[in-house]
């Protein structure tokens, strides 16, 4: 088993006013069905949603310059992560295929988590 991180960006709920209450509710229900499957399938999955509105601070370089934000476009902002076990990168990508974030043009980045060589 290898470990993978799903990094979520954008999606319908990321842009204020894009979805109606009814659409938001339906969308959330599909999210819950999707995560429920992953959380209960023995993949040792843990999710970390980030707060909304994004906010936060960014520190840069030796000067430790502190700026507010990130202020990226909604579609580029990371909105959360999920870490889980999968047999291979292909299987992990296959699991991400059904992620509801894709319904509204969001993205899931699937990255292998570094495992020390045994």
């Amino acid at each position: 088993m290898a470990r993978f991180m799903f990094i979520f960006r954008g999606g319908g709920y990321a842009e204020p006013g894009l979805l109606s209450p009814s659409e938001l509710g339906q969308h959330l229900a599909r999210w819950n069905a999707w995560t429920e499957r992953l959380l209960t399938s023995g993949r040792n999955a843990t999710g970390h949603p980030l707060a909304y509105p994004a906010g936060g601070k960014t520190l840069r370089g030796r000067e430790r310059t502190v700026t507010d934000g990130p202020y990226a476009e909604a579609k580029d902002l990371v909105s959360g992560t999920l870490i889980l076990d999968a047999a291979s990168l292909e299987e992990a990508a296959e699991l991400a295929r059904d992620c509801p974030i894709l319904e509204y043009d969001g993205s899931v980045e699937v990255r292998p988590v570094l495992v020390p060589p045994s």
Partner: peptide, 19 residues
């Protein structure tokens, strides 16, 4: 309407990975 829509979008953000 904006305030409430925003609260609901926030809920989707927060509850995607567990209600």
């Amino acid at each position: 309407e904006d305030v409430v829509s925003d609260a609901l979008a926030t809920a989707v953000h927060a509850w995607r990975l567990g209600a």
